[in-house]
């Protein structure tokens, strides 16, 4: 009787942690964290997907390891320990991208190694993984990671369509808007366009009241 009950609540908490990252604690639109890559690499859906895959991988790895060693990590040296763990995953990711996806590695450029100092990842390590069980930390990583990916896709969707007039995913053009594609609003591909799109999206999400129950 008893173990079944705990298992039930465990799986419910697991699902809750995943859902939390998607909406209630969406890293970009609610926590407003990790804006550097959100602004910089969202020029195309491809870039957004590549970056999100990278962040999810690093977040899963670091949350897992940091949760595993949480009981033996000395309080004094915890931040250096977290940074070393995160940097290890980022370096591995960077090497793998360079070997197997060189065009993506090229277009993500400096923002790939900069995942090390992404505040989403260190934030989850410090605020969640260092205090929770391995299973919940994985759920947290999935939730926050997918939440980040969704935000990246939404921002890059608007920037790519407005800035180039078409939508290209993995080299395949899904659709193009007749007038816009011949004379695109290149402003949206540039950094100021990123601020404008993100700002408007933040305002929209507030207005929709999706975030009222935070």
């Amino acid at each position: 009787m008893m173990p079944e009950e705990t298992k039930n609540t465990n799986s419910r908490r697991f699902a809750k942690e995943i859902l939390k990252g998607l909406v209630i604690a969406n890293p970009v639109f609610v926590l407003v964290l990790g804006l550097c890559p959100t602004l910089a690499v969202t020029v195309s859906i491809d870039n957004a997907l590549g970056m999100s895959a990278g962040v999810i991988f690093v977040l899963l790895g670091s949350n897992l390891i940091i949760s595993m060693i949480r009981k033996i990590t000395p309080q004094l040296a915890r931040i250096p320990v977290y940074i070393v763990v995160i940097a290890t995953f980022v370096t591995i990711l960077s090497l793998v991208f360079e070997a197997y996806l060189p065009p993506l590695h090229e277009s993500l450029g400096i923002y790939l190694p900069l995942i090390v100092v992404n505040c989403i990842i260190l934030g989850r390590a410090e605020a969640f993984a260092s205090k929770n069980t391995i299973l919940l930390s994985i759920a947290d990583a999935i939730g926050i990671g997918v939440g980040f990916a969704l935000s990246m896709i939404i921002v890059s969707f608007f920037r790519e369509i407005l800035g180039t007039g078409k939508l290209t995913v993995f080299g395949k053009t899904l659709f193009s808007i007749p007038v816009l594609s011949s004379d695109p609003l290149a402003f949206f591909i540039m950094p100021p366009g990123a601020f404008l799109v993100l700002g408007l999206l933040l305002a929209l999400f507030r207005w929709l009241g999706v975030l009222n129950n935070e």
């Binding site: 033996i72 990590t73 000395p74 004094l76 040296a77 250096p80 320990v81 070393v84 763990v85």
Partner: peptide, 9 residues
């Protein structure tokens, strides 16, 4: 201990 732990990591 913090020093040793960090070294191992």
């Amino acid at each position: 201990y913090p020093l040793i732990f960090l070294t191992i990591i």
